[in-house]
Every structure is written in structure tokens, then in C-alpha cells.
Design a protein around this nucleic acid. Structure first.
Lengths: 193, 193, 193, 193
DNA sequence: AATGAATGAGATTTCATTCAT
DNA sequence: GATGAATGAAATCTCATTCAT
């Protein structure tokens, strides 16, 4: 009888948002962003179309919300103490976590790869995260530099490219890609273990 | 004016098709496949919408036509004599050509990456070229096997992933990616030169 | 805390209603009726959507409530003793008050004009107030008739049209319309002062 | 069999545009702009929704196209030789034509009044035609000035307001408004005939 | 071979209104 | 009295495709 409390409303909102985000992510990843209609998302989530616009102001905002979440997670695992320098332990941790999320959130990364390369999306992402990407690259360059690699910048670029390629090949065909063996190989190769 | 010969007609057709393909490629690569409308393509190509359907039966066919061209070129450069075995020379040639086309037809490969990863497109491509991809992979595996790599299949997978990653990073930001240095590095690394 | 009396409840209700009415009036006048959503009104009034429907059964009722208020005020000032005849004093009073409210409640009259002319609104207003308008017109006609105007009906129609035009021009651009001078002119012209 | 000529296409386009404009004008005037949906317009015009967007890029553009046409006609009749000065003949002609178009294109002017006062539309119109309105007003002021009216600017404003009021009252209820008598009265009054 | 008007299905989005709490 | 999540009908708009000429 008494009206719901602010917390109750907040809980409802958070649950609903998550439901929509998760449903959309699955469909975007399975079928593609442009091919997935709002109707389909709300149908699968078993809510009305109107409700979706109660939580996200547009289809694009929904997409960005999903993408941001993944990038945020990724940041977490890189240079955890945020001192701008990568120790061997931090590097190892980053690799472990990268492979871990690749396997646990394959859907998400499939979406990420399929979207990040859409010119319309790419330019938005790049503008938003340019600085982050550059910082990451600089830290990797520093890492290789301190370990006496020749041309550390190139090594950093290659390392990034390689990880991208591994992620991409894995999410596109998880069952035929020897992700675990590659992970071990990479760790040994880079950490000289 | 004598009536045009069959060859002349064919030439006209081929020119028209090329015009449409090139225009579409540029727009697809610049803006994205789904975002580019047939109207925009025909407008930029300065032809009517009807004519476009005279040459391609649908937007999807136009897309596939473009993508096929690239795959065909790629096949050309791999195991040129088609004997199912890769010599060092053939491998080197393949690498040289791969980097060459990446630089010369950056637009095309940007499109290729952004599209190949669309789930809807990916499944079509995979169905059509599954066999080809598997053969290529097997040949690479054989190549590494003959040179005493441990786990040659994994090496083949990693090599493919790496090339994908390099291509992807290059087309997305050609000016900041040290493609030439990486090319040299790769050739030395794999061919022990 | 003793329970609130009936009067207190009524006061709350009346205050709430006024808040909603005032907020809606301002927004309707500023942006237009159709363009202003219930959400926007309740947001600006800092109340919930549900509450608004507690006081007004629909958006249209809210509108009519606002419009009626203005018509009621207008009636008040015309033929104050309601004897069906207009004395010079009553006419003068009506003119004075008309110009007064025009200046004091410009927002309201801007809304009134912009809405009364919407076909959908106009027909509702006309049905509801047809009789009132006709009576007013008849009284004006009688007024002019008694003062020996030729074609007093036409004079009544012209007078009404003129007042409408003045109001309309004033509310649309108050700063560039010489409302005070026109008021003086009108009073002198019609009352031969 | 042979493709249509450019002229044939132009004719089709012009006819279709007119059909859409006329249908929309009628409905806008009868029901109101916001209340009239594109679906209703295209249904009445017996064309597809898509076609309407082939000719007008949005509902608002359609509206503006209609409004502009009317304003353009109006300009034609005022100070015909465009020398910035109004002769008695020109003034008479303007009055004659104003009343003529009011009667002949009642639908249009009903739309005009109902829309011009919508805040959203009003600001667009005002921006576009501010200069025109000011020029017109200045010419009227000059006209009254040269004929020794006191406060000619006020006279110009009043005259404009009066015409607006007459137009407004006429289009809202043409059968009960003595438009012809008023026209005669106005001409005699202002031209001292 | 070539044109572009025309279609229609479906996409995204809006919003007045309801209702469980 | 009060809240705001939820609905659903309908609005605007897009676009691949067809077809008469």
C-alpha cells in the first residue's frame, strides 16, 4: 500500500537495465548490431518496447553502455596499481585475465570485435578511448624497453596486434582454436618462464 | 556507326560493374555496410538505382562480389603452384604479397575486416570458404611441422591470428602502425633470415 | 500532530492543482501544447506522473481547465451586472480590464491564442461557449445600435475582430507593439472621449 | 519502352508534389498540424508513406513548403512595384487581394493562423520573415505618415492587427462573418472614398 | 541498357495513460 | 496522497527492391 522506497526503485531499475543489457549483448553478438532490432531485444527480454527507452535513450546509447562496461573491465586488469609501469607480475596477471575474460565473456568480445571495426562505431570508440589506448601502448613500450628488446615500440604494436588476432580468432570459432595452449606459449615466450 | 560487337557490350558491362563495385567498396569501407544505402551508392556512382539491380541482384550479392574478389586474390598468393606444400620461397612470397596488398588496398581490407566480423556476414563467408581456410591451415601446419616446430597446429593458428591482428591494426590506423618494420621482423623471424 | 482537517486537505489539493496548472500553462505557452509532454510538466513541477492524473483525468482536461479559467475571467469583466445591456461605463471597464489582463497575463493569452486556433481545440471551445460568444456579440450589437452606428452587427463583428488582432499581435511580440497607445486610441475612438 | 524523358519525370514530380501539398494543407487546416499524421495524409492522397518522403524530407519540411507558398503570394500583392512606397491604388489593390485570397483560400489561411501561433512554428517563421514583416510595417507607417495621421506607427500596427483579426475571425467561422461588408467599410474608411 | 517514381515492410522512437506498491 | 515502472498504440522515417516506360 505504501509507495515503494527509493532503494526499491533503484533495485528495480538496476535489474531491468541489466536484463536489457544482457539480452541486447547476446543478440548483438549473435546476429550483429544493425541486424538486431529493438523489437527483437524487447521481445526476448519479455518487456515492452517503451520500457527500453525508459532506460536507454536510444539504440546507440544501449550499445555504448554495453561497450563501455567491457572496456572498463579491461582497464582494471592492466597495470593494476596504475603507476604507469608494468612489472612482470602485472604483465602476467594481465595476460591471465585477458585469456580468462576471453573465455568467460566470449559473447561480449565477439560483439566488441564485430563492432569496433564498424566505421561508425570505431570513430566514436576511438575518440572516447584514444588516450587510454595510447597510454597502454606507451606502458607496453616501456616494458619492452626495460627488457632490452630492440625497437620496443614495434614490439608493443606487435604484441597488441597479436592479442587482437588471438581474441578475434577465438571468439569467431572457439572450438577449433587452441586458446589454452596459445596462452601457455605466450606467457612462456614473453616472460621467459 | 556499326552496331556494337558482343565484346564491346561485355566491356561496357564490365566497366559498369567495376564502377559500382568500386563505389560501393569505398562507401562500405568509409561508413559501414549497413549504414550505406543503395541510393547513396548509385548517387555517388552517378547511375540509376535500376541499373545497379541490372548488375547485382541484391545489396548482399554486391557485398559478396566485393568480398570474393579479395579472397580470390589472397588465394592466388598462397601456395602459388597449388601442390599443397609451402616452400620457403612460397612462404616468403605470400608474406611479401600480404603486406603489399594490405598497403595498396587498405580500403578494401578495412572493409573486409569490418564485414567479415559481422555475425551475419561471417557465417556466410565461413560456409563458403570453410574448406579453403582449412586447407590453408593444414598447409601451414605442414610447413611448421617440417621445420620441427613443437605443436605445429598451434603455430599455424597463432600465425594466422597474428597476421589477422597485424592487418586489423594497420587498416584501422595506418599512420601509426609500423607496418614495414613488422614485415621485416616477421620475415626474419619465420624464415630465420 | 492532530490529523489534518478537511480544509487542510482541500488546501493541499488546491495548491497542487494550481502548481500543475501554472507549470503546464507556462510550458504550453512556451513550447506549444502538443509538443509539451506530461513527463515534462510533472518533471518541471517536481511531482510524479501519477499525481498529475490524480488531479486531472487527462492531458486534454488539464488544457480545458486552463482555458476555462481564462474565459471565466473574461466573462467577469463583460457586462458586469449581467443585465444584457452595456453601459458606457461597463464598456470602458471591459476595455480597461481586457488590456490589463493582456499585459499582466501575457503568457496565458499567448497560450489561449495558439490553442484556440487549433482546429481540434477550437471546435471544443466553440461548442462549449457558442452561446456565450453569441450573447456577447448580441450585446455589442445592441450597444452600437443604441448609439446609431450603421450596420451595428458588422460593427460588433469588427470590434471583436479588432480586439482579437490586437491581443494576438501583442502577445506575439509585446515589446514592439504599442499596446498602451492603442488602448488610449480605442477608448477615445469608441467612447468619443 | 524507351525510358521517360527528363521533362516527363519533372511533370510527374510536380504533380505529385502538388497532390501531397494540397492534401496535407486540407488536413492540416481541418484537423490541425500535430493531429494529422503522415499516414493519414498519404492515405487520403492514395499514395504510399514512402513516396511522401521521396518528395519532402520530413513532416516539418512539408509544412514549411506549404506556408512559404502562401507568404510568397501575400508579398506579391503588397507594394506591387516594390519601390518601398504605397500609393492609394496600391493600397486599394492590396486590400482587394487580401480579402480575395482570404475567401478563395480559406483553408490555407486557417492553417496559417492556427500554425503561426504555435510557438515551435512561430519562431521559425519569425526568423525567416522578420525582415519582410518589418519592411511591410515601415511602408505602412510611411503611408499613414504622408496622409497626416497622428502617430503613424501606431496606425500601422493597428491596421495590421485589425487585418489579422478580420482574417482570423473569418477563417474560423466564414458563414457568420460579414466579410464583404467589412471589406467595403475598410476601403471607405482608409481611402476616404 | 537505363531511369527514377513508387512501394511496403519494418525500423526507431514517443508518450498519454495505468497500476502495483 | 504519491510514486515511477511499465505498457502499447501510434508516430515518423528508412530503404532494399520493383517496374512501367
Amino acid at each position: 500500500m505504501s509507495p515503494r522506497t527509493k532503494k526499491q526503485f533503484d533495485d528495480i531499475r538496476e535489474n531491468r537495465k541489466k536484463l536489457i543489457r544482457d539480452t541486447a549483448l547476446r543478440l548483438f553478438a549473435e546476429e550483429g548490431y544493425h541486424v538486431t532490432s529493438i523489437s527483437k531485444i524487447t521481445e526476448k527480454a519479455d518487456i515492452s518496447k517503451g520500457l527500453m527507452y525508459n532506460y536507454f535513450s536510444s539504440k546507440e546509447e544501449l550499445l555504448m553502455d554495453i561497450l563501455n562496461e567491457g572496456v572498463a573491465e579491461f582497464i582494471n586488469y592492466f597495470d593494476t596499481n596504475k603507476d604507469g609501469e608494468l612489472t612482470d607480475d602485472e604483465f602476467k596477471y594481465f595476460l591471465e585475465m585477458t585469456f580468462k575474460v576471453l573465455k568467460e565473456r566470449t559473447d561480449y568480445w565477439r560483439l566488441y570485435f564485430s563492432l569496433a571495426l564498424q566505421p561508425s562505431v570505431f570513430s566514436i570508440l576511438q575518440n572516447k578511448y584514444r588516450k587510454l589506448f595510447e597510454t597502454t601502448l606507451a606502458i607496453m613500450e616501456d616494458y619492452f624497453s626495460k627488457r632490452d628488446y630492440e625497437n620496443p615500440r614495434m614490439q608493443a604494436l606487435m604484441f597488441g596486434a597479436f592479442l587482437d588476432g588471438v581474441g578475434l580468432n577465438y571468439v569467431m570459432d572457439p572450438r577449433n582454436f587452441q586458446i589454452d595452449e596459445i596462452k601457455e606459449y605466450v606467457i612462456h615466450h614473453y616472460l621467459k618462464l
